[in-house]
Amino acid sequence: MSTLEIRGLKVSVDTENGAVEILKGVDLTIKSGETHAIMGPNGSGKSTLAYSIAGHPKYNITGGTVTLDGVDVLEMTVDERAKAGLFLAMQYPVEVPGVSVSNFLRTAATALRGEAPKLRTWVGEVKAAMEALSMDPSFAQRNVNEGFSGGEKKRHEIMQLELLKPKIAILDETDSGLDVDALRIVSEGVNRAKEGNNIGVVLITHYTRILRYIKPDFVHVFANGKIVEEGGPELADKLEANGYAEYVTA
């Protein structure tokens, strides 16, 4: 049982016109096995929250705390956060030329498990994860995210979620750019990984359509750098009907 606790998190980024505050005091608690949907309009700071927790160097933490099972996450390097059990599925996964998916996955698994996975079982593990996401076996020999379609990038992210088995996973707009079939396959992957490993999931999204496949326990509305309303799944229905207008103009 793990708990990610975010308290009063304030984050700014440096711009030509000086530091601009993006997150203005975020409070959120995620426990193993829970699914939290964070919904909000573009530019509200949802992705900043995701990248700040993962430790992207662009974001300056100016206040608040983030702890995983009581341990300070903000003091950790990016790789230490992953080793502690955090995972970020990125909206725009990065190309790494010349590094094969197979090599990348094995290097990551070795880093996270503390020892190289046994080759025989590992090959089977990767094969099963790829099949489950309807990915062609040749995928493993391609370079990481290079020339991937939008859907392939997202499948690759969720394949990592299944293989790397984090405690808490933050999925940043995993639904964007997916057609209906791909959305279903990717969502099933998330559900499988969650059920199999009791992962706590934070689902960041602009739209409600992914919530038809991944059922949230809690819905948080994010606007202007903070959480402005919280509730159960019924809150998503309200957003579906009314949009974000009332939060943006407030």
């Binding site: 990016v78 790494v96 030329p97 590094v99």
Partner: peptide
């Protein structure tokens, strides 16, 4: 950042990137 967010240390991430660069 992408490589490190998967648990790979900075030194290993740099090594992977350089190897990848030359691998072609």
């Amino acid at each position: 950042f992408y490589l490190m967010s998967r648990g790979i240390t900075l030194a290993d991430a740099r090594r992977l990137v350089v190897r990848g660069f030359f691998n072609e």
